[in-house]
Simulated assay, not measured.
Amino acid sequence: MNQTAFPPLRVTDPAAFGRVAVLMGGSSSEREVSLDSGRNVLEALQSRGFDAHAVDGIPALVDALVHGRFDRVFNILHGNKGGGEDGVLQGLLQAFEVPCTGSGVLGSALTMDKIRTKQVWITAGLPTPKFLRLAPGADLRAAALELGLPVFVKPSSEGSSVGVARVVTEADIDAAIEVARGYGGEMLMEQMVVGDELTVGILGDVALPSIRIVPKGEWYDYNAKYIAEDTQYLCPGLDGADEDEIRKLALDAFVAAGCGGWGRVDVMRERAGGRLLLLEANTAPGMTSHSLVPKAARQLGVSFEELCWRILEQTV
């Protein structure tokens, strides 16, 4: 499979997939995004003739699996702590011998932890912004001054820009401290990169066209991702050799982190010099009306319904 076209579907009869659970909701901080994504995926699969059914959260799924109600799972749970991206769900389904979309235990668990993902990327020689690991109770003020402002402070194991604080001047540090207190776990402090924010979707062994994100506000926060209608998405985000480079980097990063199936890799491009720097990988990206993987797939002529089919097809 190359980076400009997809072969015909390998499985053309939806009945071959059996009864499909679309796992959504859960109890993580990203529940509402997951429900939105899940409803879209469920509708897309049902429109193509799949015997697909909504399941809200892991406990409900376990009950259904014990009674043998599903043959495979389309996982669209986001986040950890009741979500489906931290490897717990993947290990559970492995034990039940039920196929599931997305990465396995290793890739899911690793990439849910932004700090350790960066450590793997550094070991593999892949570029990422300078960062510090902040243990619970760490002196955030001292760390910010050590790393050098401006910085982002974010929970190591949350997604969807949940709990992210931006520290541009020392006056912003107190607000970031309050954000950190609200999460209690490890925090990632990362140097802010001045430049373009881009993302690259992954489907199988194909890196989809990059998307350059241009929010109306100063940065791409939760509101810009899921609510605002004035965020611009330019696809492809880069041209020529630069586009080839970012897609190769994203695929290399995805593989280095032990990921597979489908996902998304977020990248910054420095305004001065054009250097690409990896931010994080997402193993269960959103599938909402604002989500980025469907936007990139459409550039290759893949509709939302076909995208869902191709994601699920990888479990066969």
Rank of each mutant, 00 (worst) to 15 (best):
T283R: 01
Y220E: 07
D221Q: 11
T283M: 02
I311C: 03
R269A: 03
D172Q: 09
V73W: 06
G26E: 03
I58M: 09
N40D: 04
R72G: 03
G184A: 00
L77G: 04
L251Y: 13
L277T: 04
L140Y: 12
G84V: 02
R69Q: 14
V214K: 11
R10D: 06
R247E: 11
G260P: 01
V22P: 07
G25R: 05
L92T: 08
A284L: 08
G25I: 01
M1E: 14
K114W: 10
V164M: 10
K154M: 01
E97Q: 14
V267D: 08
L203S: 01
R69I: 06
R72C: 05
R264E: 01
Q232G: 13
E178M: 00
G148L: 08
L292H: 05
M268H: 06
V55E: 10
E170R: 12
E229N: 09
A256S: 10
G91S: 06
G258A: 02
M187Q: 14
A284N: 06
G125E: 10
D172S: 07
I122C: 00
L234V: 15
T101Y: 01
F17N: 04
V62I: 15
A143R: 13
D252Y: 00
L234P: 07
P127A: 13
P150V: 04
T4E: 14
A64S: 08
L279D: 05
E197D: 11
A142K: 14
E43A: 15
V162I: 15
G79F: 02
I76A: 04
L77T: 02
S303C: 12
V168L: 12
F70A: 07
E30M: 02
V193R: 01
P14E: 15
A256W: 02
F304L: 12
A143Q: 09
V293F: 04
D221V: 08
V168C: 11
A176S: 05
V194G: 01
T12M: 12
H53T: 10
A297H: 05
T111W: 04
V214F: 08
V62K: 15
V164Y: 10
K118L: 00
S27Q: 10
G26Q: 03
E146T: 13
L198I: 10
Q232S: 15
A180G: 11
S160W: 00
L198A: 09
A109M: 08
D230V: 10
R48G: 09
G82I: 03
I246Q: 06
G49R: 14
P14Q: 15
W121K: 05
L307I: 04
E97W: 04
V179A: 13
L35W: 03
V267W: 12
G260F: 02
R10H: 07
F70T: 06
V179S: 12
E190T: 02
D230A: 10
